[in-house]
Design a binder for these strands. Structure first.
Lengths: 206, 206
DNA sequence: CTCGCAACGTACCAACTAGTCGGTATCGAG
DNA sequence: CTCGATACCGACTAGTTGGTACGTTGCGAG
């Protein structure tokens, strides 16, 4: 039979709990027991669904990718006619997401990859898939915007600019965590927007 | 008597070891035992110098600040006559540091703050001091460059641009860790340079 | 209904964790 | 020399860690 999960099963509860707990405390400091109690599930259920803590880490990153990509796919910034407008609207959308508590708007995979890039290659790969996969959704629009302005000869690639947007966002989250507030992050996103406006020859707003 | 430390004492060895071990495995995953054996020191020495693991975390962040700030103070990028040239040379310098293995060029405090921003306020503050303090060393040059071009009215502040440079660097490190290579990071630093060139009305090189 | 299997729950363990505690070595002051 | 203080050692502990063993429940197939 197929698995429509009308009722939330232990696996889903664990994955959702993982997103929250790991974003609060980091991956290593998140214990299996804590993950279980946050999910309202016993340890037996945990190791029934995941062979190890690391396997949950991979699944959590994949779950994060699925959740966020669904959210961005539905977002309104795609509706602009001009490709550059879509890119700028994406940035604005990202900025609008920076609200509430730090664990609510920071990135799970950005946090996890810092702790696991050397010790858990599977998790690192899952984090890379998440970040690079999301960046890839921007490439087409950036490429179209570049083509309209024959910027191809500049040596600058759409792929590299797409990755740069993610770097700025990840860095903005780190600064926000260090300073304990969201303002720095928003300000950095403003700089990113201004960069793209300047790059594509549009006069910055403010 | 004053403490000239002709011979490396246990405290210094522990701090140096901490920089290395934590950059490899993150803060939480770095155990006290491992820190000790990496430093060639016993556990007794550890808890003689530090009341707790968290206290070492704070000391490690401070030690990182001291080490890096000494290095940047001596660097050649200060020697340019024009303030904007100094800022751009700083960026080039940062890019030139991105070589070798990932644990060698990534940032200790950027790694630590992600794991501890909620659970260990003392460590978070130490990380903030390190990042914000380093950013502050750029403010004067950015301000001078802005003044020369009467950019003050734009609402853009030197402080915010200085912090943005750090955000880009931190984000570049995360991307590098995710992709397992330094190239993404360098590319992001190139974007940062181009932004500043465009912002200050200088034609980008490549 | 029975069978079988996936989805859990409970009790448990070996290894590891941060931190302690009594002891020793060294060194400068008096 | 003695005295005291600082630096360091290493065995120990109480609690925690990821992971296991085994029992129970529920549910769809035949």
């Amino acid at each position: 039979m197929f698995r429509l999960a009308a009722k939330m099963d232990a696996r889903s509860k664990l994955l959702d709990a993982a997103l929250s707990v790991i974003r609060h405390k980091g991956y290593s400091a998140s214990t299996v027991d804590e993950l279980c109690s946050a999910a309202g599930v016993t340890k037996g259920a945990f190791f029934h669904h995941f062979k190890s803590k690391d396997e949950l880490g991979v699944a959590a990153a994949d779950h994060w990718s699925a959740t966020t990509s669904a959210m961005f796919a539905e977002a309104a910034y795609h509706r602009h006619a001009d490709p550059l407008d879509r890119v700028l609207a994406y940035i604005d959308f990202r900025k609008s997401l920076i609200t509430g508590g730090l664990p609510d708007f920071t990135c799970l995979v950005g946090t996890m990859v810092q702790e696991t890039y050397e010790t858990a290659p599977d998790i690192r790969d899952a984090c890379d898939r998440s970040i690079s996969g999301h960046a890839a959704t921007l490439v087409a629009d950036i490429e179209a915007a570049m083509a309209e302005r024959d910027m191809v000869a500049t040596g600058l690639t759409a792929q590299s600019l797409a990755l740069h947007t993610q770097a700025v966002l990840q860095g903005a989250f780190i600064l926000a965590k260090a300073k304990g507030g969201a303002d720095v992050a928003k300000s950095s996103v403003d700089h990113l927007r201004r960069y793209i406006e300047l790059l594509f020859g549009r006069t910055p707003a403010a």
